[in-house]
Design a binder for these strands. Structure first.
Length: 269
DNA sequence: ATGGTCGCGCAGCGA
């Protein structure tokens, strides 16, 4: 096992459209584990061979033109499980995939977009986050290495939005959505990027329209939530804005975290 | 300026 593990997450907004950018990014960022969201493809269409040639095992949970999540790993990939555990499993909608990679329980999550506060989609988003918390409580040990990474469609606090006043109370920043993320943290997770970078204005998503990226009008909604045993060992965190530039970018940039796991075996149950 | 751009897939919806 490598002494350092680089864990990354990226909403690619169609893996078919984004595959050249994803291959390029993997070749220079060299993540050990990469969680993808919005692959927008079936399991049959997933390019396992492309990633195998780059040195990655992969698992995918997707059924067509919406949603779709994947985990790539070059440190082993065991026990891939799609969706929620138990009765809520059907409701996961190809928005959750778990696997064990290099001794870390990894989840790739794509939280529903709530559209407007008060809409049925907003209620469904809150219910989904509640199901995620129940799933985590039922299937994870907070003292073990756990990394829940993905597009949460929630900006955890006002530092994570370009204009807190303009968007206050809207979807992605409402108190109920933020409380749902806090409940995950209270279970035993840390927003590792925020733990390493306290300043405002560091975003992971920018609307394609109206030049929002160049106007720095974004939000940080792509999160890596890690149990304390991992978060305490994080040495580096970055949102790679360069991946949002250039030809045919996703509207999200990848976020990556480096964790020094040299003494992890002795420190965990 | 209350719009704009993408992806999917072929009209219009979702983000």
């Amino acid at each position: 096992m490598a002494p350092g593990m680089r864990i990354a997450t990226w909403n690619v907004n169609s893996l078919k459209a984004r595959l050249p950018r994803v291959e390029e990014w993997i070749s220079y960022a060299r993540p050990d584990v990469l969680c993808l969201q919005e692959t927008k493809m079936t399991d049959e269409a997933f390019p396992y061979m492309t990633f195998q040639l780059l040195g990655y095992d992969a698992a995918h949970n997707g059924d067509g033109r919406w949603n779709g999540v994947a985990i790539l790993s070059r440190v082993g990939l065991e026990d891939p499980v799609p969706g929620f555990r138990g009765a809520a499993g059907e409701k996961a909608e190809c928005r959750l995939l778990s696997a064990t990679c290099g001794g870390v329980l990894v989840m790739s999550v794509y939280v529903p977009n709530g559209r407007r506060v008060g809409s049925e989609h907003y209620a469904a988003k809150l219910a989904w986050l509640e199901d995620l918390l129940r799933h985590v409580e039922a299937s994870c040990d907070p003292d073990a290495p756990v990394a829940i990474c993905g597009d949460f469609n929630v900006a955890p606090d006002d530092r994570d939005v370009w204009d807190a006043a303009a968007v206050h109370g809207a979807t992605h920043v409402s108190e109920q959505e933020r409380a749902a993320v806090r409940a995950l943290l209270e279970w035993g997770l840390v927003d590792v990027f925020r733990a390493l970078h306290t300043e405002p204005g560091l975003y992971s998503w920018w609307d394609y329209r109206a030049g929002d990226f160049h106007r720095r009008k974004g939000m940080r909604i792509d999160l890596a939530l890690m149990s304390h045993v991992l978060a305490d060992r994080a040495t580096f965190a970055l949102i790679d804005r360069n991946a949002r530039k250039g030809k045919l970018p996703s509207d999200h940039a990848p976020a990556l975290i480096d964790v020094d796991i040299e003494d992890l075996k002795e420190a965990t149950p």
